[in-house]
Structure formats: C-alpha cells, structure tokens
Write a protein that binds this DNA or RNA. Structure first.
Length: 271
DNA sequence: AGGGTGACCTGTCGGC
DNA sequence: TGCCGACAGGTCACCC
C-alpha cells in the first residue's frame, strides 16, 4: 500500500504507543522478502525506544539494535493490545507488554530485518543508497537540480529509483509530474531550472497533502490503529485514463514505462 | 557506472 | 459461472 505518506501515517499511528514497550516474543508466519537475521529469542526483553522512518522503511529502535520494517506493495501494520489470532497473511508479530505489532502482507514483498546498528552493513545494504527526505529541509532545490543534471534516464524512473529523493512511488510520481507539468518520459537532465523548481514544490505539496489526509489516497489503506483516512484525496491523473484532465479536459493517457503504468495529460505535460 | 529488465507473491478484476 | 491473463502501492539482482 505504501508510499511515503502512508508509511509516515502508519508511523505516527503507533510510534508513541509502542515507545517503552518490552518485547516478550516474536511470531513468524510465511517467509518475507528477507530473513529476519536474528534468533527471535534474542529479541525478548528488549525495550522499544522509538520509531523512525527513512524513505519507506520504518526503523524500530530497540535496546542495542533496530528492526527495519518495509511494507512492500501490500503490507500494513497494526499495533493493539488485543489482536485477533493471526490470519493467513499475518507474517510477523512482535509481542510486547503493551500490545502486538503485526505485519499483514498478502504479497510478501515486505520485510522485517534485524540490524545491530544503523551503520551496520545489514542496514546499510537497505538504506545506503537512499536519497534525501523530501519533507525535510535537506531537500533543497539547488541540490535537486544538480542531481537531476547527472541523470539521463526518464524523470519518472529517476523519481521511482529513490536515489535522488526518497518516498515517491508510482502513484505520487504521476501526480507530482502532472503538478509540475513535466512529461514522465523527459530525461531528468533535460528539465529546465524552472521545471525542477516546480517539481520540487510539487513533491513537497503533494506528499504533505496526502500525509495530512492520513495517506487516504490509497483505496484500502489503514494505519496501525486500524483507521482509514478521513476522506479520499482525489488524484489528478493516476488511474484516470480516458477521463478528462481536471485542468484542461483533455483525456488523460496511460502507458507502460519500465513495466509500471504512467498517467499524464498530453496537453498539460508536453514532451 | 548508469540504465533497463526480470523476479519475487497473491489477490482481484475484466473479458470471453 | 468459470477460466485465464493482465495488473497492483516496491525494490533488488542481474544484465548490457
């Protein structure tokens, strides 16, 4: 389910509640993308300090180590004192004295990985190449411009790769490029400085708006408290092929770009 | 070294 | 109704 707004909405929905909780066990379901990397027994007795986010990863800081959680395409978390018995798609439970943190993930592209420290090679393999955080001050126009100047790939691919800026997934990539009036197949290096400024602003604006709505852009998203977003944020182009552009009424088009669907308005986003 | 492709896995939906 | 292929929010390993 998750792009950055959904992951952050998830974090906010349980970070404070789980802080201070003492782990007393782990339950594993079917294998996820990576093995846990630690004997589940060794997690017992450790206390959860805080929950951070890096890109689309959630970092659960525990005494002398951290769990890296990724929701993949179809994952979601729940944290509650009384969860029902695990179902077919519940593949990880962290049992604590404050409740159970459960990863539900039908497609199992998600992961839970233990690392002794954030600079540990295990963690760095997952976090090492991530770009800047789009909602932090370190995401700065001039650096963004310079980084894009180095890339000849299509701007949409560059956004999805997450090596320049993290958190923009397939839905928000289309949304953000529409807002910036940039065609998804334009080479990143070909964007004018003005276009990069527009894209930079669009990334911040679109992600912030989605986060404020609780990540409710996604049809079936709910946070770790089991709450759906309060209202559906309507998309401008994503999943709207053939429907009129909300700005100029030209039919929205879709095409395959690196096996992912890209939506755009041919009028607002010329090549 | 950057860039493109296949692979991982399950559920759902539309067309015949 | 039933079957079958296409497709879905991510990212890593592997080619050139």
């Amino acid at each position: 389910m998750p792009e950055l707004p959904e992951v952050e909405a998830t974090r906010l929905s349980f970070a404070e509640r789980i802080a201070g909780a003492r782990v007393h066990g782990v339950r594993l379901g079917k294998p996820l993308r990576w093995p846990l990397g630690v004997d589940p027994q060794q997690l017992s007795g450790r206390v959860v300090q805080q929950v951070r986010r890096r890109g689309k990863y959630l970092l659960l800081d525990v005494d002398s180590g951290l769990l890296l959680l990724h929701l993949g395409m179809s994952g979601s978390l729940r944290f509650a004192a009384n969860l029902p018995p695990p179902g077919n798609h519940d593949h990880f439970d962290l049992l604590t004295d404050q409740g159970t943190l459960r990863l539900h993930d039908p497609r199992r592209f998600g992961s839970v990985v233990w690392a002794a420290a954030e600079d540990d090679p295990v963690a760095q393999k997952l976090l090492g190449k991530l770009g800047v955080e789009p909602l932090e001050a370190t995401f700065e126009v001039q650096h963004f411009w310079q980084a894009l100047q180095q890339r000849r790939a299509a701007i949409k691919s560059v956004l999805l790769a997450g090596e320049v800026v993290v958190g923009v997934g397939n839905i928000y990539a289309s949304e953000v490029l529409f807002a910036a009036r940039v065609h998804p197949e334009r080479s990143a290096a070909s964007l004018t400085h003005l276009e990069v400024e527009q894209l930079h602003l669009a990334i911040r604006t679109v992600l912030t708006k989605a986060l404020r709505s609780g990540g409710s852009t996604l049809r079936d998203f709910s946070n770790a408290a089991g709450e759906k977003g309060h209202f559906q944020l309507q998309t401008q182009v994503y999943d709207r092929a053939g429907e009129p552009c909300r700005v100029c009424y030209t039919p929205i088009e879709v095409f395959k770009q690196g096996q992912r669907s890209s939506y755009f308005c041919p009028e607002c986003q010329p090549r």
